[in-house]
C-alpha cells in the first residue's frame, strides 16, 4: 500500500510539474512579449544595432512568405506521395520503404536539412536566399503532409470508391471528385499543423535564408525572418533587442498555439460527428 501511495503521489507530482512548466514558460513569454509589442513592431524596419526603437516588419513578412512558399512546394508533393501510399502502395514493399523513410525524415534533425539545402542551393547559387529558406522548410513539411494525407485517405471507406467506380468513373476522377472531398478537412488539418511547426523552425534557416534587416527585394537574396532574428537579438548585448526577441517569441508562440488549438478542435468535432 505504501508503494502504491508513493507511486501515485510521484505521478501526480510529475503531472503538476509539467503543468507548472507550461504556465511558467507561457507566462514569461506572454508577460515579457506582450510588453514589447506596439505598432512599430509590426510596421517598422529594425533599428541599427544599439539604437532603440524600430520594429520587425520585414522579418514578419519574410517568415510569412517563406512559410507560404514552403507550403506551396510541400503540399502538392506531399499530397501526391500520400495518395500513392494510400491508394496504390498499401501492401507493397516500396510502400513500406517510403513510409519507413518518411517517418525517419519527420524526426530528422532540422539543422541537417539546413546543411543539405546549403550544399545544393546556397553553394551552387553562390549566395543565401529566401528560396533556399523556403525549400528547407518545405523538406521539413513534406513527410508530415504525405503521412497525414495517407492516414486521412485511408479513413475514407472503400465502399465510397467502389460506388463511384461502379458508376463508370475513372480512378483519377473518383479521387479528385469523391475521395479527396471526403478527406479534405482532415488533410487541411494536417497541413495546418505542419505549417505551424515550420513557422517556428529556426535551425534550417540559419544558413539558407540567413537574415536581413531590410525589406527583401524578392526571394533571390537573404531574407529577414522572425526566428533567426529572435536568435540574433537574444544573443546580442542590447536590452532593447532582448525585449524585441521576447516580442518575437510571443508572436510565434501565440500563432503556433492558436493554429494547433483550432485544428485540434476542428479535428475533434469531425471525429465525434462522422
Amino acid at each position: 500500500m505504501l508503494v502504491n501511495r508513493l507511486v501515485l503521489g510521484v505521478s501526480t507530482l510529475a503531472a503538476a510539474l509539467g503543468l507548472a512548466m507550461l504556465v511558467w514558460i507561457l507566462g514569461d513569454v506572454a508577460i515579457k512579449g506582450a510588453a514589447s509589442l506596439n505598432r512599430d513592431f509590426f510596421t517598422e524596419l529594425p533599428a541599427p544595432p544599439g539604437m532603440e526603437g524600430g520594429g520587425l516588419a520585414n522579418a514578419i513578412v519574410g517568415t510569412l512568405i517563406m512559410t507560404g512558399v514552403a507550403a506551396a512546394i510541400a503540399v502538392p508533393f506531399g499530397v501526391f506521395a500520400g495518395t500513392w501510399l494510400s491508394e496504390f502502395g498499401r501492401e507493397s514493399r516500396l510502400g513500406e520503404m517510403v513510409r519507413y523513410f518518411s517517418d525517419i525524415l519527420v524526426s530528422a534533425p532540422s539543422i541537417v536539412v539546413g546543411v543539405f539545402v546549403y550544399i545544393v542551393m546556397v553553394k551552387t547559387m553562390g549566395h543565401f536566399s529566401g528560396w533556399a529558406g523556403a525549400v528547407s522548410l518545405a523538406i521539413i513539411m513534406l513527410p508530415v503532409v504525405s503521412r497525414t494525407t495517407e492516414e486521412m485517405l485511408k479513413l475514407v471507406p472503400h465502399e465510397l470508391r467502389e460506388a463511384a467506380l461502379a458508376l463508370g468513373a475513372p480512378y483519377w476522377k473518383v479521387m479528385l471528385q469523391v475521395i479527396y472531398r471526403a478527406a479534405v478537412s482532415g488533410m487541411i488539418t494536417g497541413i495546418m499543423l505542419s505549417v505551424a511547426r515550420v513557422a517556428g523552425e529556426t535551425a534550417p534557416l540559419l544558413f539558407t535564408a540567413l537574415n536581413s534587416p531590410y525589406w527583401a527585394d524578392g526571394l533571390n537574396e537573404p531574407m529577414g525572418n522572425l526566428t533567426v532574428t529572435l536568435f540574433n537579438y537574444a544573443m546580442s548585448p542590447y536590452d532593447d533587442w532582448h525585449a524585441k526577441a521576447w516580442g518575437a517569441a510571443f508572436l510565434i508562440t501565440m500563432t503556433v498555439l492558436a493554429v494547433t488549438i483550432t485544428t485540434r478542435l476542428v479535428l475533434r468535432k469531425r471525429r465525434s460527428a462522422p
Binding site: I25, L26, R197, G200, E201, A249
Partner: peptide
C-alpha cells in the same frame, strides 16, 4: 500537447 507545440527556439530563449 500544447507544451509539445511550442517552438524549440522559445524553449532555448526561456
Amino acid at each position: 500537447e500544447l507544451l509539445a507545440a511550442i517552438p524549440s527556439i522559445v524553449y532555448g530563449m526561456w
